[in-house]
């Protein structure tokens, strides 16, 4: 602990996290087509940060790059997908990329693209992936996620 005038003690920080959500229905495109990106491109170690308003995007991406000391690790799944979490669930699931007829790409379960548990891929490159939850309520809570690949 760093000392101040008279304050001498800092206790270790320990949060007991808890988070659940209510679900709202969103319209789902019915038919999946081939995704625009290869799901294997998600495999690796990522720094992850989120923002809500565009003015915070640049600094959020910069902060994501500093988070590789506590990276989010994405591994290849037993089938064709990758092992990742969905919102508010600490369990890993195999997720995959799905294209939709409206030109969007989603990441989620083997369900029609745009499923409430999906994430919509906003941009995708080898170094940076930007995505947001398809469910508006979940998106409102967590904002837009920026994944920056760790070295």
């Amino acid at each position: 602990m760093r000392s101040d005038t008279c304050l001498k003690i800092v206790f270790a920080v320990l949060f007991v996290g808890g988070c659940s959500s209510t679900r709202t229905e969103v319209a789902t495109p019915a038919v999946a087509i081939a995704p625009a990106y290869a799901v294997d491109g998600l495999v690796g170690r990522w720094g992850v940060a989120s923002y809500r308003v565009e003015k915070d995007r640049a600094r959020t991406e910069a902060m994501a790059r500093t988070q590789c000391r506590l990276p989010y690790v994405i591994t290849k799944g037993p089938s064709d997908g990758v092992m990742m979490h969905v919102a508010d669930d600490a369990q890993l699931y195999e997720l995959t990329l799905k294209g939709s007829k409206d030109g969007k790409t989603y990441l989620g379960f083997d369900a029609p693209p745009g499923d409430p548990q999906d994430r919509e891929i906003l941009s995708f490159s080898d170094k940076v992936v930007v995505m947001q939850y398809a469910n508006p309520e979940t998106h409102a809570r967590y904002g837009t996620f920026i994944y920056t690949r760790c070295a």
Partner: peptide, 28 residues
């Protein structure tokens, strides 16, 4: 406990830090 969380969350209404913060000395 909640590995799905972002490692950094920019300020906003869903942020546990709330609307304003006053930083106390050099403490956490």
């Amino acid at each position: 406990r909640q590995p799905y969380l972002p490692r950094f969350m920019a300020g906003g209404p869903g942020n546990p830090m709330g609307a304003r913060a006053h930083y106390l000395g050099s403490t956490v």
